[in-house]
Write a protein that binds this DNA or RNA. Structure first.
Lengths: 235, 235
DNA sequence: GTCTATAGAAGGATAGAC
DNA sequence: GTCTATCCTTCTATAGAC
């Protein structure tokens, strides 16, 4: 969940080189990383270009050499988030959990960790941007939607992998959307209340719902349908 | 859901007065209303004081006569939202629906209407501010949390009114939090995708969950407990 | 690719007359 | 309570040397 960009291959140009610094990422990467951090902590509008420059140790001219505008820098940040979803958010959880349902809740646990580590000050970086920026720039809105899509697809795959443990009539795509909904709504309230409770309660009820779905699927496959799982749901 | 401030009693100072205008609210009210609209559409940081002034037809000096700062104006906006929750959001729904569960979904339907009317550009005004402002000012964060609390309490009362239709073990407060979670998360995704679908899917699955809870309660009261509703949930 | 310097607009807030 | 004028800072972005 740290979302540190480990994929910066330019990060170690030292072997045999004349550069003495061992952790010097490229100028462009430092700009994107500084912007990512600041947009996460303060939001887009409240972050000044000067601040990004200072944090990255870069001069104005260089920023506008790589990026047309502050907004273009935000688009690069959104690309970074898409790229980091698997290595930073999913893979660690999936490596520790093989059960597809446990994986879903493992991902949610990761967000709980971020809330814990930041005293409920930081949640989902995409959620922040979604509400702040969706109406201000169509390319940005699309970048945000793509991030949501990537997250949702990963969860949806878990639900598909759960196979017959979930009722046939439950649309996996809709349930994945629902899980993202619960995550984002829970994070929002946790931040507003500066308390983990709303997030934890929300996840607990989500778990109860999914437990009930799985019970219904088990009952149905045992030939004793309860009548509760008839018909297509969430389509 | 229009959240127009009908409670401005100063709005009609015409009878026998010398003022020719019929819809002239007080200067302070016009400032709060203009700020409310602009913060909703553009967010707090992206809204300039000059813009608020122009929209309200007020001069800079007057704003700072009534409010210490832009942030103080935001606090007044948050107070307005608290005051408008009942007359603008709850009462119209509650007048049309007597069933407490139907009332809950009637409130959610109101948010769907707002998304529809704005082509998914506007959702919950408090949700926007929650993610943008929770870390920037403690008084603002508290004002946001109070707005969430008011909303949650109203929903919780509906759930309490539902009585034994919901299982005993389901904590009404947690379920109310969960409903707010689904509303906010659904609105967020609807705006990011500019599509009603994520909101509608989320509400549909919420309804399925509550249906299953009510079925479990009915089964339990019929003396044929399924084992699914044992124990305290959401505490 | 990086540097300094700065343009030009917009930001929030204040002073002081009326 | 309201007006105009304006202070000072910060903003994004550019110019042009190196």
């Amino acid at each position: 969940m740290m979302l540190v960009d480990r994929s910066s291959k330019e990060a170690f140009p030292t072997m045999g080189g004349s550069n003495e610094r061992t952790d010097q990422a490229s100028t462009r990467d430092r700009l994107v990383e500084a912007a990512r951090q600041l947009f996460l902590v303060k939001g887009y509008e409240a972050t000044g270009v000067a601040e990004i420059l200072r944090e990255a140790g870069v001069n104005s001219g260089s920023l506008y050499y790589f990026f047309r505008s502050k907004e273009a820098l935000l688009l690069a940040v959104l690309e970074t988030y898409k790229r980091l979803l698997a290595p930073e958010v999913l893979d660690p959880v999936f490596a520790a959990e093989r059960d597809p349902i446990a994986r879903v809740f493992g991902v949610l646990e990761g967000y709980r960790q971020m809330l814990t580590l930041t005293q409920c000050r930081m949640g989902c970086p995409i959620g922040n941007l979604a509400l702040e920026m969706s109406e201000k720039s169509e390319p940005v809105r699309v970048g945000i939607a793509e991030n949501f899509d990537g997250w949702k697809r990963a969860i949806e795959q878990c639900l598909i992998d759960a196979g017959s443990r979930l009722p046939q009539g439950v649309n996996r795509s809709s349930l994945a959307t629902f899980i993202l909904t619960v995550m984002e709504g829970g994070v929002m309230q946790a931040r507003a209340h500066r308390s983990l409770a709303p997030f934890e309660e929300s996840v607990r009820l989500l778990r109860d719902y999914i437990d009930r779905l799985m019970q219904a699927a088990a009952s149905a496959s045992a030939g004793e349908g309860t009548g509760a799982s008839k018909g297509e749901l969430g389509t």
